[in-house]
Design a binder for these strands. Structure first.
Lengths: 220, 220
DNA sequence: CCGAAAGTGTACGATCTAGTCCGTTAGTCG
DNA sequence: CGACTAACGGACTAGATCGTACACTTTCGG
């Protein structure tokens, strides 16, 4: 049994900076994701944590900096997921399907991330711009797609000449819309896009859509 | 010269209820779209109109009701655009392209609408639910797509069996993402999706994507 | 074991913001 | 013309909200 660390873990757990910082980020992510930047309440974040509002200012400086840190952590999540992706052994079609499904699954599992992205776009990305550190040019995902496309084109499977980022955009748009716009879409058309009973259907639809597009012969 | 109506139009233009109401909605749409529901300031809306804040409460009752009216008007806009669409003379493939391009062009021309939709989704569609009147089941757009799909399938052009709402979702996701997520996408990948130089490219890509998907033969 | 620094809690304040009170003016109808 | 009502304006308020002052506790190196 892990009895040696009972004191530190269960007894009081005081003065654990790392843990406090992390708890603030967790709670803040929920609050910002649920209510947007302006709608989020610092006092409400404080009320939902074990420590007090004072700590938010101690660790992060203010509401805006906290929000930026939340955003950063959210993006780190999907980057980590993408980094784990390994498609080297797969044929190009399967590789693209795998990539699409990874994005689909990540967004499905992380609606808070999608909401944060929406929120940041409402603010025209000003916080990302201010923080600077988001740029990911020559990103791994872009190059991964580019390599798959090259292989597919070389093998004659992908007849359409397509830019890697455009493929990423195509996949993202589908996955993001389904999660981000489920409420208005549901209110208007009476269909919940994110209903679990429809998950497999849309997962397959996404893959098919991308593969069909890449495979089709461009006319004209 | 239009001298006869100088008095009414230019001189003072006082006591024009319809005009005042409409001006409030215009300004409010901008403010909500720019800052979100919580971020929008009633005082700021007031400052940008010819009349005063008192009139917002006189005509709409409060911030929330004003927001709902703004949303309603925004949705009425795209419904009107869809209603004008006439594809009866076109072959199924051209009809689908036309529909996709209409959606693309509307979203391109009305980013405020897209932003309002994003904002409403951040709030989980609660305002739409509260207002009730948004539901559009058996919507014209759905039936329009269904008819095109039937024709296309009858003619053997669309080999994939697809649901009409799913096609609408596919089109919307692409058009919405391009406008709604341009800031975060731009910040990360250094490409402005809504840049006018890329408009035709994405417009064509959307059409191709949809047609390719509908035309492809489903495997397995 | 002591002093400094890191970490924490409480109470409070300055400012902002949605919404209202009350008075005024323009149009209109008998 | 007179009075009634719809339309309007500006000042004000109650409460919310971000942020801070200050006192206190724990930790840890020397």
């Amino acid at each position: 049994m892990p009895g040696t660390r009972v004191d530190a873990d269960a007894h009081k757990r005081q003065r654990d900076a790392q843990r406090t910082r992390s708890e603030i980020l967790d709670v803040a992510a929920r609050e910002f994701s649920n209510h947007g930047y302006a709608g989020a309440r610092v006092d409400e974040i404080a009320a939902q944590m074990q420590t007090t509002k004072r700590m938010i200012y101690y660790y992060f400086g203010g509401k805006e900096q906290l929000y930026v840190e939340v955003l950063k952590r959210a993006y780190a999540g999907i980057r980590a997921a993408e980094a784990e992706l390994d498609v080297d052994g797969l044929d190009p079609v399967s590789a693209i399907r795998r990539l699409a499904e990874l994005t689909f699954d990540h967004h499905e599992a992380n609606p808070d991330f999608i909401r944060l992205v929406s929120i940041e776009n409402i603010h025209r990305g000003e916080h990302m711009a201010k923080a600077g550190i988001f740029a990911d040019l020559n990103s791994p995902i872009r190059e991964l797609i580019a390599r798959i496309l090259e292989r597919g084109q070389a093998e004659g499977l992908f007849r359409r000449r397509v830019d890697a980022l455009d493929v990423h955009m195509m996949i993202s748009s589908f996955c993001v819309f389904r999660v981000a716009n489920r409420y208005t879409f549901g209110a208007i058309f009476g269909r919940d896009l994110a209903d679990s009973g429809r998950r497999e259907h849309y997962r397959a639809m996404l893959s098919d859509m991308v593969v069909d597009y890449l495979s089709a012969a461009p006319v004209r």
